[in-house]
Amino acid sequence: MAPVEALARGEALQARALAPPPGIAPQPGRLYDEIRKFLASASDDRALAMGPWDVQKLLFPRARDLPQSGRISLGGGPFVRSDGARFGFTLTVDCDSAPPTLMAYGFEIRYPAGVSVPFLRYDLNPPGAAPRLDVLKEPRCHLHPGHQDVRVPSPLAHPVELLSLLVYGP
């Protein structure tokens, strides 16, 4: 067990990491549109090995089925990058809070065989989740750098920022 002082530093780091990212769209439909637009544009410029409609079909729910209030989840995948890497995401937003709050997300990319890191995964654990490990081992917002048991603190990010990393990053 880590000393109390180390845990306090971990809590302070987590508090900073959870500062809301700028520009979360106030309406769920707008956030959804930003995601769709980003993925369609990635398809247009051939960063994805999929046509725009194939990309859009992988999003769930469809735009017209997206609730406008309450806790909403949306996600999609597997999207295929032009180098063969596959990625997907799920995210949950509290639309009743002002401004809307990201409650949980998981953005994961899996690389083709032969790449030394098998996957990267950016997670935001749901609020109120049962703590399994202390904050130093499992901060609420973290990155799995290719191993399920390794969680590196990561800043809370806008979903399109995370998609930018998955599409154009490593």
Partner: peptide, 21 residues
């Protein structure tokens, strides 16, 4: 609830997103 974000989506799909947090 376990920490993985999939559980948040699971609750929302079951119509129990109100239980989050």
């Amino acid at each position: 609830i376990p920490g993985e974000p999939e559980y948040a989506e699971w609750l929302v799909l079951l119509g129990r997103g109100d239980l989050l947090g």
